[in-house]
């Protein structure tokens, strides 16, 4: 399959040529040009992913950057998520005499929905904006051009490594945040109650089964891929001015956050259909 490379200069030309005198026609033209560029970008990334000269060192560096360097943020978020969910839910469950259901309820909501979505949104903010800003500034300062004249494929070196690292590391971060969330929930349950660690976890996992975990894990891979693709696309296709770096970082966060919610909705619908 011969997939054309993304040529930023041509993208600009095409946009200018496509814009018709009418404003709506112009906006629609721009939209379809952008859509075509996104499709080419994704296809080019997939093609380069399976090329022979995989940039393994850069991939490992990106895994470190995305995974390890996001751990403190995810740790705090995970613990607070579990803690707050428990503190908010406990009084209601106490009123209904169902406080023993607390560990299972918190664990299910964390693993199925809260953990993946909130962690992905945090990652969209930190990782997506980082990718958009880094690649955008590399574009503005001609570092991507320098890479190209050094016989290095920038798509392979910069984009493939980041997208794959995000796709792999974000699910791991989500599982880590889930685990810390349950830990935070146990801490929250002990503020006004008294429950042992072993009892809390056995109650929590008694209510979790395979069908809770599988869709959550699958959608977390999609979240990772979406954040990686959007961050890289916005950075790689940034304009030439310094203002473009801010625009790339900002739009990477906004679009990837939106797409995380959309992907979540789709996966929930599919899971609901399959389960019912």
């Amino acid at each position: 399959m011969n997939i054309p490379a993304v040529n930023i200069d041509k993208v600009g030309d095409a946009t200018k040529q496509t814009i018709a005198p009418g404003r709506i026609a112009g906006k629609m033209g721009s939209f379809f040009v952008e859509l075509a560029n996104v499709v080419f970008f994704i296809l080019a990334t997939i093609k380069e992913t399976f090329s022979r000269d995989f940039e393994s060192r850069e991939f490992l560096r990106q895994c470190f950057q995305i995974g390890y360097k996001t751990l403190p943020l995810i740790s705090i978020t995970g613990i607070i998520m579990g803690l707050v969910l428990t503190i908010q839910s406990r009084p209601v469950l106490v009123n209904f005499g169902a406080v023993t259901k607390l560990p299972g309820m918190v664990a299910a909501s964390l693993i199925r929905e809260m953990g993946p979505v909130i962690t992905a949104l945090i990652c969209a903010g930190k990782i997506g904006s980082g990718m958009g800003a880094e690649l955008g500034s590399m574009k503005v300062t001609e570092q991507i051009d320098a890479m190209e004249v050094s016989s290095t494929n920038p798509m392979r070196f910069l984009v493939v490594t980041r997208v794959l690292a995000a796709t792999l590391m974000i699910p791991l971060l989500i599982l880590y945040a889930d685990a810390l969330g349950i830990l935070g929930s146990w801490a929250g349950a002990n503020i006004k109650g008294d429950v042992t660690f072993v009892l809390f976890f056995s109650q929590a996992f008694a209510h979790i089964n395979f069908i809770d975990l599988l869709p959550a894990v699958i959608k977390s891979f999609f979240f990772g891929a979406v954040i990686g693709f959007v961050g890289c696309y916005k950075g790689y296709t940034a304009g030439r001015g310094t203002e473009s770096v801010g625009v790339a970082a900002n739009s990477a966060v906004v679009l990837s956050s939106l797409l995380v919610i959309v992907v979540d909705l789709i996966v929930v619908q599919i899971t609901d259909l399959l389960v019912s």
Partner: peptide, 9 residues
Amino acid sequence: FQSGALYDS
């Protein structure tokens, strides 16, 4: 390159 284009990282 005009800007030098050294890799920042």
